[in-house]
Design a protein around this nucleic acid. Structure first.
Length: 260
DNA sequence: ATCCAGATGA
DNA sequence: TCATCAGGAT
């Protein structure tokens, strides 16, 4: 273990002792609850997730309970959090964990490719925060911190993962990752660091996207939005966006009419 | 417009 | 690799 890495660890832990956040999902090691938090936190700020997280667990307090929910219920509960496909995938993942892993979230996460919506980062995060496993996870915060700390310009995913593993204090994985998150979110923010995140902005981000969101939210609130893609077309979202943009989609009686 | 504890399909 | 994802706040 190099001196540079040791000093890096001490800096991060020192910050954490002073300014570490007390967040709802840090008060539990229940893998199900950690999973719910991680899915909700994908591309979504902590402050916005908190009320949704609390409400969600009030309704479904176990993976088995969630697995028994309907898609309609799940989408209603998710409404307002954004990127709703996460909710659909979380429901499907809960069903698979219940059916194929006897409800063992941790075991399922070790084979995360069977779980829709759970990728490299999320699977590791669950294992780290729920079981303190000695793994390194790299999210947008940690990526930014590593780039700044080690003066990296354009690191590959593999480089970052390898570096993150070398920095991991064995036996303190959970605290270490919590500390990194806080350092990245509160101290070395994206704006302050000048390091841009990986995720790109689609070409069509903006007003069209918001219009789509408004219409969909209204329909779902009134219970008039089918909880499946229109006409069974899995490309509905992209299709709707394009149609709205071209003015080819019309609304009548709170329903969308999409020409085929 | 950018960013946000990303994942997915092409 | 890249845009897209039934977003939303700043």
């Amino acid at each position: 273990m190099s001196t540079a890495i040791r000093k890096f660890q001490e800096k991060i832990f020192a910050f954490y002792r002073r300014q570490g956040r007390d967040l709802p999902w840090r008060r539990t090691t229940d893998p199900y609850r950690i999973l719910v938090s991680e899915i909700m936190l994908q591309q979504t700020q902590v402050e916005r997730v908190i009320p949704f997280y609390e409400r969600w667990l009030e309704r479904w307090d176990s993976v088995d309970a969630l697995a028994g929910a309907s898609l309609q219920e799940v989408l209603e509960q998710w409404m307002g959090l954004g990127y709703n496909n996460r909710a659909m995938r979380l429901l499907e993942t809960a069903k698979r964990i219940t059916a194929d892993y006897a409800g063992d979230v941790l075991a399922a996460c070790r084979e995360y490719r069977n779980l829709p919506g759970v990728g490299e980062y999320t699977s590791r995060a669950v294992r780290i925060f729920a079981a303190n496993e000695n793994l390194a996870a790299v999210d947008t915060n940690i990526r930014r911190i590593l780039m700044a700390e080690f003066s990296l310009q354009n690191p590959s995913t593999a480089d970052l993962r390898q570096l993150a593993e070398r920095c991991l204090p064995i036996g303190r994985s959970r605290d270490w990752h919590n500390a990194l998150m806080d350092y990245g979110a509160l101290h070395l923010t994206a704006a302050k660091s000048g390091i841009s995140p990986v995720s790109r902005q689609g070409k069509f981000a903006g007003s069209v996207r918001q219009l789509r969101a408004e219409i969909l939210r209204e329909l779902l609130q009134k219970g008039q939005l089918p909880c499946q893609y229109f006409e069974g077309d899995e490309r509905f979202p992209a299709a709707l966006r394009g149609l709205l943009r071209e003015g080819l989609c019309r609304r009548e009686d709170n329903m969308l009419f999409i020409p085929k």
